[in-house]
């Protein structure tokens, strides 16, 4: 690990932003990913600004929805009665991630900022465009069973590892940020980026910007939902494919459907093609399967991860079918 300076901002987000801009570093919250990356020298910030004691650890009702502060611990968020009651998809997704110990440390904002688990990203002896732009990608012809099948580029096939973000994508969340140029909101679906030819740029955050909260809208509250995660062991493993979905059926037609996928892309993947096909359609197994196939049609798997295409299709269809049966 490199030497770095450390400062704590406890009073306000503005102070944290000011401290960071003085020191050119990274914000530190739970540290469950950043500290690991610093130990491995994947990240080598000259300064850390500790935001873990900022007054951003509340969950509040707001405009019929919820505002989840950036430093709310994942375990606290998953257990919060309002979250469990109105957004059970979020609670379920969080509980499918990491381990109890990690969830006790990890925060809302930090979860959004998680970096990929690509083996070659973690190994400084390997080539990785995400770690060292322009160096090449050793995953493309190497081990990539856990890698992306949608939205990939020749430069990067890494996935975003979060479970929580899959639910937030499906629930149309909004990310609140503050920075040197003031506050702004970013729609969750726009927050994470596809790799393109800049896989090292993972989010829409500008230099020095700090996540202060994630808002959940009233429109996605109280929907029947399921989070299904498929992985190589029963706990403490990243998703090979996960599906976060919600479904509302009215008069035999689909009135609201939200589908997001984890483990398949550089960002939590909103299955917009499938959703569009299903809006207003009958909730039948055939329609679900057809929509799932359409969503995965653009997939570009490699030799190790071709199974993810069929797996994602099956999981989308079965989760929707299960939701439809619960409603019936």
């Amino acid at each position: 690990m490199n030497s770095f300076s450390y400062a704590r901002a406890s009073e306000s987000p503005d102070l944290a932003v000011a401290l960071l801009n003085e020191n050119q570093g990274r914000y530190l919250a739970g540290g469950t990913n950043l500290i690991d990356l610093m130990r491995e020298e994947i990240e080598t910030p000259a300064a850390l600004v500790d935001i873990s004691r900022l007054p951003l650890a509340q969950i509040e009702e707001r405009e019929g929805g919820l505002r989840i502060g950036a430093t709310v611990k994942n375990s606290h968020c998953a257990a919060h009665p309002l979250v469990r009651d109105r957004y059970p998809l979020l609670s379920s997704a969080i509980l499918h991630g990491a381990s109890a110990q990690l969830r006790n440390m990890a925060t809302t904002g930090g979860n959004l900022m998680q970096r990929t688990r690509c083996y070659y990203f973690y190994d400084t002896a390997s080539r990785c465009n995400k770690r060292t732009p322009g160096s090449g990608c050793d995953a493309a012809q190497g081990f990539h069973r856990i890698h992306a099948i949608l939205g990939t580029s020749p430069h990067c096939i890494a996935t975003h590892p979060s479970d929580m973000c899959v639910a937030l994508t499906a629930l149309d969340a909004t990310v609140q940020v503050t920075g040197p140029d003031g506050e702004r909101s970013i729609a969750f679906g726009d927050f994470h980026r596809l790799p393109g030819n800049t896989p090292h740029v993972e989010t829409e955050l500008r230099a020095g910007e700090l996540i202060t909260a994630v808002d959940l809208p009233a429109s996605s509250a109280n929907l029947p939902s399921i989070y299904r995660k498929v992985r190589d062991r029963a706990s403490y493993a990243f998703a090979l494919v996960s599906v976060g979905a919600a479904l509302r059926v009215e008069d035999g037609r689909i009135a609201d459907v939200r589908i997001a996928l984890g483990g398949v892309a550089h960002k939590p993947w909103r299955a917009s093609i499938a959703e569009q096909m299903l809006h207003g359609a009958e909730p039948t197994e055939a329609n679900f399967r057809q929509a799932a196939e359409a969503e995965l049609t653009p997939a570009t798997p490699g030799h190790d991860n071709a199974f993810k295409v069929e797996l994602a299709q099956r999981m989308i269809a079965s989760v929707l079918q299960e939701l439809a049966e619960v409603k019936a």
Binding site: R117, R233, A234, S235, Y236, A237
Partner: peptide, 10 residues
């Protein structure tokens, strides 16, 4: 994290 030995739940 990446070399998977069984966890309790397995």
């Amino acid at each position: 994290a990446e070399y998977h030995v069984p966890v309790q739940a397995d």
